[in-house]
Amino acid sequence: MREIADRLAAWNDAGVRYAVAVVVSVRGSAPRAPGAAMAVSADGEAVGSVSGGCVEGAVYELCREALDTGETVRETFGYSDDDAFAIGLTCGGTVEVLVRPGPFPASALTHDEPVAVAHLMDGSGILTVHASHHTGTTGRADVDQAVVAEARAMLDAGRTGIISVCAARGGTTPHTPRQLRRDDVEAFVHSYAPPPRLLVFGAIDHAAALARQGSVLGYRVTVCDARPVFATPARFPGADEVIVDWPHRYLAAEAERGALDGRTVVCVLTHDARFDVPLLKVALRLPVAYVGAMGSRRTHHDRLARLRKAGLSDGELARLRSPIGLDLGARTPEETALAIAAEFTAARRDGTALPLGQINGPIHHDRAAVAAAQ
Score class of each variant (00 low, 15 high):
residue 35 G to A: 10
residue 167 A to N: 05
residue 61 E to R: 15
residue 351 G to M: 00
residue 7 R to M: 07
residue 256 E to Q: 15
residue 356 L to R: 06
residue 207 A to D: 02
residue 288 V to G: 12
residue 285 R to G: 11
residue 12 N to E: 12
residue 35 G to S: 05
residue 43 D to R: 13
residue 206 H to G: 07
residue 186 E to Q: 13
residue 225 D to H: 02
residue 106 A to D: 11
residue 361 G to R: 08
residue 325 G to E: 01
residue 162 I to C: 12
residue 63 C to W: 07
residue 110 T to F: 02
residue 374 Q to S: 14
residue 283 A to G: 04
residue 148 V to S: 01
residue 340 I to R: 02
residue 210 L to A: 05
residue 209 A to P: 07
residue 318 A to K: 05
residue 316 E to Y: 00
residue 243 I to K: 06
residue 171 G to W: 12
residue 278 P to Q: 12
residue 361 G to P: 07
residue 83 D to G: 04
residue 314 D to Y: 04
residue 340 I to Y: 00
residue 96 E to A: 10
residue 155 L to V: 12
residue 10 A to W: 02
residue 21 A to G: 09
residue 150 E to Q: 10
residue 110 T to D: 06
residue 225 D to S: 08
residue 370 V to T: 14
residue 65 E to M: 06
residue 52 G to P: 06
residue 197 R to V: 15
residue 266 V to K: 00
residue 261 D to H: 08
residue 365 H to K: 12
residue 82 D to M: 07
residue 289 A to H: 01
residue 332 T to V: 09
residue 333 P to H: 06
residue 40 V to N: 06
residue 22 V to N: 05
residue 337 A to G: 08
residue 122 D to Y: 10
residue 270 T to K: 00
residue 277 V to W: 03
residue 314 D to K: 09
residue 129 V to F: 10
residue 310 A to N: 06
residue 84 A to M: 10
residue 119 H to I: 06
residue 148 V to E: 04
residue 201 F to N: 00
residue 61 E to A: 14
residue 265 V to I: 15
residue 303 R to N: 03
residue 59 V to Q: 09
residue 138 T to R: 01
residue 119 H to E: 15
residue 44 G to M: 10
residue 69 T to R: 11
residue 78 G to N: 08
residue 323 P to A: 04
residue 343 E to V: 03
residue 61 E to C: 10
residue 181 R to E: 11
residue 62 L to A: 14
residue 107 S to T: 14
residue 155 L to G: 08
residue 92 G to M: 02
residue 178 R to V: 12
residue 147 V to C: 09
residue 133 H to A: 15
residue 167 A to W: 07
residue 174 P to S: 11
residue 99 V to I: 15
residue 28 G to F: 03
residue 290 Y to L: 00
residue 193 A to R: 05
residue 226 A to D: 15
residue 198 L to W: 00
residue 318 A to H: 03
residue 103 P to T: 02
residue 327 D to H: 02
residue 129 V to N: 11
residue 314 D to G: 14
residue 89 L to V: 06
residue 288 V to F: 12
residue 328 L to T: 09
residue 200 V to K: 07
residue 47 V to W: 10
residue 152 R to W: 04
residue 176 T to Y: 05
residue 335 E to K: 08
residue 197 R to N: 14
residue 338 L to C: 10
residue 363 I to R: 13
residue 23 V to D: 11
residue 181 R to G: 12
residue 83 D to C: 13
residue 302 D to L: 01
residue 39 A to F: 12
residue 56 E to M: 09
